[in-house]
Design a binder for these strands. Structure first.
Length: 311
DNA sequence: AAGATTGTTGCTTA
DNA sequence: TTAAGCAACAATCT
């Protein structure tokens, strides 16, 4: 890898995860799992449980035993979490966190990079199939599903139906569902003393928005990320609702393309995504007013905004 | 060589 | 009691 930050040209938030979900559903459903390779067993244990030696040591054996010979019959998404339904009474949770990727490789394509499908993104520059592969599923037709994850923040976890209900309850409203109505939003925003940035990042409020889309939503609304939620009026809350739906829908339409400031050794730009107005554009001109986009830290996260257009 | 990158959570503080 | 804030985790680059 030429540049560490190349890994971050794909930071999965709702639109990216949804794109993967839709594409994988067309490719892997009802295929019998022939074998599983666990290359790093930390991936099978969420970070907070990795000090549990028993979980860590039993993880791979149990994981294989439950999955081999079975097949996936459906893929759901809740926020940024993927839920693979097995043809048994169990479910496989997949969280990509920051650097996780799900890569489906058709039979016999291992050396033809141009044919490798990256979570639904055709990525001719993809080179890291092996180095950061943590878990590999092999299906009966010899196609493979790679879970790659440079930083090993992501995880794969098997749970039952009861545990699934609990997991789902932990999430707030799905932003693209009818449940995200103006009435519901007003109640949700009411009396919150935190910043709009922290509010939008909190998955218990709205599920699936990450750091990039938070900044983009705030810009689209002309609202500073530092604004306290309880200072927003009805009109502003409705605007946040409208722009959240609009931006996420557009991003899904663009197959979840998010952020890419990569330049290769020849100085060529990667894909620049025109709808990013503020994220990663600090020091550049605001496309609306020509002023300079600033970057500060809000809620512990890098936060981009236009001081003129947002207040 | 410390600081920064982000999603989530569990602990601390208010 | 509840909400808000923050450290910690992971790998790697500047």
């Amino acid at each position: 890898m030429k540049n560490y930050w190349d890994c971050f040209n794909f930071m999965p938030e709702l639109p990216e995860v949804e794109t993967i979900r839709r594409d994988l559903a067309k490719k892997i459903l009802d295929k019998k799992i022939k074998d599983i390779f666990v290359l790093d067993k930390r991936t099978l244990t969420p970070v907070r449980h990795r000090s549990d030696i028993r979980q860590m040591s039993n993880g791979a054996r149990r994981f294989k035993k439950i999955l081999i010979g079975k097949s996936f019959v459906g893929i759901e998404r809740r926020g940024k979490l993927l839920i693979f339904k097995l043809n048994t009474n169990k479910f496989l949770l997949v969280h990509l966190k920051m650097t996780g990727q799900l890569i489906y490789e058709k039979k016999g394509n291992s050396k033809k990079q141009s044919e490798i499908i990256v979570g639904g993104h055709e990525d001719k520059n993809f080179k890291q199939v092996d180095k950061y592969a943590r878990v590999v599923f092999e299906f009966e037709d010899s196609s493979k599903l790679y879970f790659n994850d440079l930083r090993i923040f992501g995880y794969l976890k098997i749970i039952n139906e009861k545990e699934l209900e609990k997991v789902k309850e932990g999430f707030g409203v799905e932003p693209l569902s009818p449940a995200m109505s103006p009435a519901k939003s007003m109640a949700m925003f009411k009396n919150k003393k935190t910043t709009i940035k922290a509010f939008l990042l909190n998955q218990k409020n709205i599920a699936g928005i990450g750091n990039i889309y938070t900044d983009e939503i705030c810009f689209a609304c002309g609202i500073l990320p530092t604004r306290k939620v309880n200072t927003l009026n009805k009109k502003e809350i409705e605007l946040i609702l409208k722009n959240t739906k609009k931006i996420l829908k557009l991003a899904i339409e663009k197959r979840g393309t998010t952020f890419n400031n990569y330049r290769d050794s020849n100085g060529n730009k990667g894909n620049f995504v025109s709808f990013l107005k503020v994220y990663g554009r600090q020091g550049q001109k605001c496309q609306k007013c020509g002023g300079e986009i600033k970057k500060i830290k809000v809620a512990g996260r890098g936060t981009h905004y236009c001081p003129v257009c947002q207040s």
